[in-house]
């Protein structure tokens, strides 16, 4: 069984890439990982289409956990999940967790073969 994949969605490509670097440092290539940041014009913001692509890049049959920063990242991510094909939609979750710590903790959990539910729960334990 493949490990759960991780997607990092920030308003800033630098934040998303930096968080992904920190994840890689922890889990290497054991976890499918993708990041995206920036709006459709390349400024700060998030892009629905780029998030859909990132989910596909980090796809795992075990599911994908998405870590987001602020409002639009969450709303766009939730919309991206809902627009996925039926068979994939139920295997993707948006975690209510801080983006950097959440991504590292979620990926570490995922690298041990944990289920999507466990990966999400572990990340969300970081939120008060």
């Amino acid at each position: 069984m493949a490990n759960v994949g991780i997607v990092i969605v920030s308003h800033s490509p630098k934040v998303a890439e930096g968080a992904a670097d920190m994840v890689r440092q922890m889990v290497g290539d054991d976890v499918p990982l993708a990041w995206t940041g920036g709006n459709p014009a390349g400024g700060l913001g998030t892009s629905f289409e780029a998030i859909v692509e990132a989910i596909h890049r980090a796809w795992s049959d075990a599911g994908v956990a998405i870590l987001v920063d602020l409002g639009g990242a969450e709303t766009n991510s939730e919309m991206a999940v809902e627009m996925l094909p039926e068979d994939k939609r139920h295997r993707v979750v948006v975690c209510n967790a801080p983006i950097v710590e959440g991504a590292v903790v979620a990926a570490t959990e995922a690298s041990g073969g944990a289920s999507l539910g466990t990966v999400r729960r572990t990340a969300e334990e970081l939120s008060p």
Partner: peptide
């Protein structure tokens, strides 16, 4: 609007 706007208003007006 969903694909071009970005921000929270993209998915909101898209919806």
């Amino acid at each position: 609007l969903l694909s071009k706007v970005g921000g929270a208003s993209g998915p909101l007006y898209g919806t």
